[in-house]
Design a protein around this nucleic acid. Sequence first.
DNA 1: CTTTAATCAGATAAAATAATCTGTTTATAA
DNA 2: TTATAAACAGATTATTTTATCTGATTAAAG
Lengths: 145, 145
Amino acid sequence: MTVIFSKKCEYGLQAVLYLAAKDAGEVVSSDDIAKKLNIPKEFVSKILQSLTDSGLVNSKKGKAGGFLLAKHPANIRLLDVVAAIDGLEIFNSCVLGFPNCSPDHPCPLHEKWGALRTSAYNMLTEQTLDQLKEKTLNKIAHLEV
Amino acid sequence: MTVIFSKKCEYGLQAVLYLAAKDAGEVVSSDDIAKKLNIPKEFVSKILQSLTDSGLVNSKKGKAGGFLLAKHPANIRLLDVVAAIDGLEIFNSCVLGFPNCSPDHPCPLHEKWGALRTSAYNMLTEQTLDQLKEKTLNKIAHLEV
DNA sequence: CTTTAATCAGATAAAATAATCTGTTTATAA
DNA sequence: TTATAAACAGATTATTTTATCTGATTAAAG
Ligand code: SF4
Ligand code: SF4
């Protein structure tokens, strides 16, 4: 199969977008998140635990516990989430799988792909969670369709 | 991990680019290909067998046998190879993994990602193997570094 | 206090992908 | 005509990714 982000990363992005769409400081359980997003509860729980370790998310234990963003949504870029889960090697490696990607010994697609890769990187850098709040709410509202 | 194309597809693309860089009609063994590209012989052999089934590659059995392109390199687009190996679902599915990608219920990145996705699709459609011959030869010449 | 519902840690299982192996057929070349 | 070297078919193994399970800890609510 062909993939941009791993499932882990997709779910992680969905989850933090969901958290960002909630009111600031609201605590959301992994059970809630899993149901809303239709993703495995234990899996998203694990992912959010790792994002907690990364400092993007905070958690609250015990009854009525759950997760919430560790920073203001304006201060979390999509790139931060991707970096925490999948890492950033994709922005430094070859689409064709050739080793030693470099301007000296570029692969045949270096020029064309490099431009796209940079665009993607910039997009993920520019987009912060708060900018996507509206659209996230709209998408989630229509998920059960 | 994050991936654009599966390993199968990466190897497949490398292999057909290599074949395209050879003289027209030249038969190349999977052993040769594997050694030049530093990829597992049996694996690339399997991949080329499947591309033979797809009609992009021809094979010649027996001693001094091997593989060669089934068409002129100008008539093989990168997209054809990707379609044959990984399929094209990636160009019709959500970066964020949300279901039901559509302009009606777009995911939060629909607009921005959609543009990049289209660019990538167009690039793979426009680039044919013959256009990349020079650059392929140059890259392969420096692989052992 | 006790019950309940949550995170958390770590093991385990299942599925998908990547890679290898074993043997057969085929055609070239010695 | 025999030895060799290749594709080919299919099974098997290994690795990675995805998902689930089990029990422990934590904290709120009754
Ligand atoms: S830039 Fe060129 S060489 Fe480097 S990876 Fe992308 S495609 Fe391959
Ligand atoms: S287009 Fe938008 S909605 Fe459709 S997939 Fe890409 S990102 Fe998700």
